Computed example of a mutant assay.
Amino acid sequence: MKRSQLIRELVEIIALALVIFLVVRFVVQSYRVDGPSMQPGLVTNEFVMVNKLSYVFQKPERGDVIVFHYPKDVKQDFIKRIIGLPGDTITTDREHVMVNGKLLKEPYISLAYNSEGKSWQVPADQYFVMGDNRPVSSDSRFWGYVPKDYIVGKAAITFWPLNTIRAIDTYSDVYKDIPKQK
């Protein structure tokens, strides 16, 4: 009796561990920051926890830092900040970004820089993303929009190295007064 009870408990523990592993794998994912495009907020070799369910129940918002499949090569994942939502008009000059005519005051960027002045109209089910380190970021200004289906999830916290554990700020106040596009 004791031997069969031990075997049953071991099977239950293994099954429970497998269920927990699978649930966690489908809900969260770790992502290693590679490159300077999100400095100063995120730096190379930091690890972030990505919430893969965040956009099942709500839509992405301006300011969210997301991990997504790079539209030019879906085998690569990138991390950037959402600047424009579907229907938004994004306009840049050499130092500024405007969304729907509203100038963004971005405390998270390392340097205000755009290679040229330009305007984009974000298509349905797509997002305009930019890195926080504008002079070196490869982003929507150069290769276009991120389809909603390419978004892996929302970057929620940094967790490695241990001295960098913190929530990732979306700076929602920066975007709160932007008028909605029709």
Rank of each mutant, 00 (worst) to 15 (best):
P71A: 08
P179Q: 13
K59T: 14
A17E: 09
Y145L: 06
I109S: 04
V28T: 05
D125Q: 15
Y175H: 01
L111T: 14
G117Q: 13
P107H: 02
L53F: 14
K118D: 14
V97G: 06
R62I: 01
I79C: 11
V50M: 05
V43G: 08
I79Y: 03
M49A: 11
K176L: 06
V33D: 01
A155H: 01
Y31Q: 05
Y150T: 04
N114H: 15
N51T: 01
I151L: 05
K102Q: 13
I13P: 03
L104V: 00
K154Y: 04
H69A: 09
R94K: 13
S37H: 08
I83V: 10
R166G: 04
K180N: 12
E95G: 08
S119E: 15
P36R: 10
D34L: 09
W143P: 05
Q181L: 05
E12Y: 06
G63W: 02
L6Q: 11
V33W: 05
A155K: 00
P86K: 11
F26W: 11
F78V: 01
V99D: 10
D173I: 00
L162D: 07
S54T: 02
F128G: 04
A124S: 15
N45C: 03
V122E: 08
W120Q: 12
V67H: 03
Q29R: 13
N100A: 11
G153D: 09
A17N: 03
V99C: 06
L103N: 09
F47G: 03
V28H: 04
S54R: 13
E106V: 00
W143H: 12
K182Y: 06
R32G: 04
V67S: 01
G63M: 11
P107L: 09
Q29F: 03
L6K: 12
V122Q: 05
Y175G: 00
Y171R: 02
K59L: 11
S4H: 05
S172R: 14
G153Q: 03
R141I: 05
V74C: 04
V174F: 00
V174M: 03
P36H: 11
P161N: 06
P123E: 14
V43K: 13
V48C: 07
R62H: 09
V65R: 00
V24Y: 07
H69K: 15
M1Y: 04
F159M: 04
M1W: 07
I109H: 02
K180A: 15
F26G: 09
T164A: 07
I66N: 01
V65W: 05
I14H: 09
Y175S: 00
S37Q: 07
V65P: 02
K105R: 14
Y175K: 00
L85E: 13
F68A: 01
D77L: 06
V67Y: 06
R81P: 01
A167E: 08
Y108Q: 06
Y70L: 09
I168G: 01
G117C: 12
G87T: 14
L85A: 10
V97I: 15
G144S: 02
N163A: 07
F128S: 03
F142N: 13
